[in-house]
Amino acid sequence: MCHGRPGVGKTRSAREFSSFPDLGEYAALRPIAALLGEKVARCRAVFYTVSVSNTPKTIDAVLGLNLIKLGYARLTVAGGSQDEITHDAARIACPLVIVDEADRLTIKSLEHLRDMADRHGFGLILMGMPGLEKRLARYAQLYSRIGFVHEFKPLTETEMRLLLATHAGDFGISFDPAQLDAVEAQAAVIRITRGNFRLMERLFAQMRRIMTLNRVEEVTADIVQAARDCLVIGPGN
């Protein structure tokens, strides 16, 4: 089980780790395209986002179908053909499922996921907001199966400085360590975002917009503050 505040990178980390490909156009027992085959070979897990209105039926319609599709695709890539691949073999060919927005799951949906994990034999990671672990503690059959709980924490100041140095350029922004204004601007970004990755992206987008409108290339603390004033930032950020 993984939990953390909004914006700390839970979903992005899970998507990056799982490398789950889009299987919308793939049909089981049909030849698999070379590009999709490469993506399937890199895939580590099925990534599933819980819908706001969820039932065991909707979970089967999306997650259950993706499990079967990925199973057939994995076995096809591994064996080189679709020959002799059975439905039962495809059902258990996926080793891991990552469920995002697990806070939305109803009691019946949680029980259904537990039953699917037991029947299909896959590992299950539930991801959600802080408090998810306390909610699941009320369901002994599910909680007794949880191996560990991991908390996604905001980035530290050191991590933020490294991120700003390596990825600020993706937004057309640079912090020159030799310029006092840039150093002050970097400190302002760290103070405002407090290690929240999503908030940092939103702040950078506003900073770039303000710099473009004012035809400014050098970032300053005033630009950071002006960008911050354009955003709605809750007390938890």
Rank of each mutant, 00 (worst) to 15 (best):
I173P: 01
T158W: 00
I146Q: 07
G80W: 15
T212Y: 15
A34N: 09
D229L: 09
Y139Q: 04
R161D: 03
D176C: 05
V8E: 08
T220P: 10
A117M: 11
C94Q: 12
T212I: 13
R135T: 10
E84W: 12
I125Y: 14
A89E: 13
F148H: 06
L70A: 12
V224K: 03
F197M: 13
V97Q: 02
E16V: 07
L75P: 07
P130C: 07
D176A: 09
H167Y: 04
L23N: 05
D181Q: 07
A117P: 06
V46H: 02
K69R: 15
A117T: 11
V40E: 07
A90P: 09
T55N: 06
L162S: 08
P95L: 09
N196K: 08
M207R: 08
R30M: 10
D176K: 11
H87R: 13
R161N: 02
D118T: 12
L203E: 06
I125S: 01
A226K: 11
A137T: 02
A178R: 13
G169E: 09
H150P: 00
E84N: 15
G80A: 15
K153D: 11
A78W: 07
G172P: 04
V46W: 01
L110P: 03
S19E: 15
A227M: 05
A137I: 01
K69S: 08
R228P: 06
I190C: 05
M207P: 11
N66T: 12
A137E: 06
G79P: 05
M116C: 08
T212F: 14
L203R: 01
F204I: 13
V46Q: 02
A45D: 01
V224F: 13
A28I: 12
G37M: 03
Y143H: 12
H150M: 13
S19N: 13
T58N: 05
R161E: 04
P21Y: 12
V219F: 10
F20C: 12
D176V: 01
R194A: 14
I32W: 03
T11K: 11
E25T: 02
A226I: 04
Y26P: 08
M211E: 12
G71L: 04
E133A: 06
T76S: 14
Y26I: 05
K57Q: 13
S19C: 10
A27K: 03
E151K: 07
E217F: 14
S19W: 04
K69P: 09
T11S: 15
A78I: 02
A28D: 05
I233K: 03
D170C: 00
S51A: 11
A221S: 14
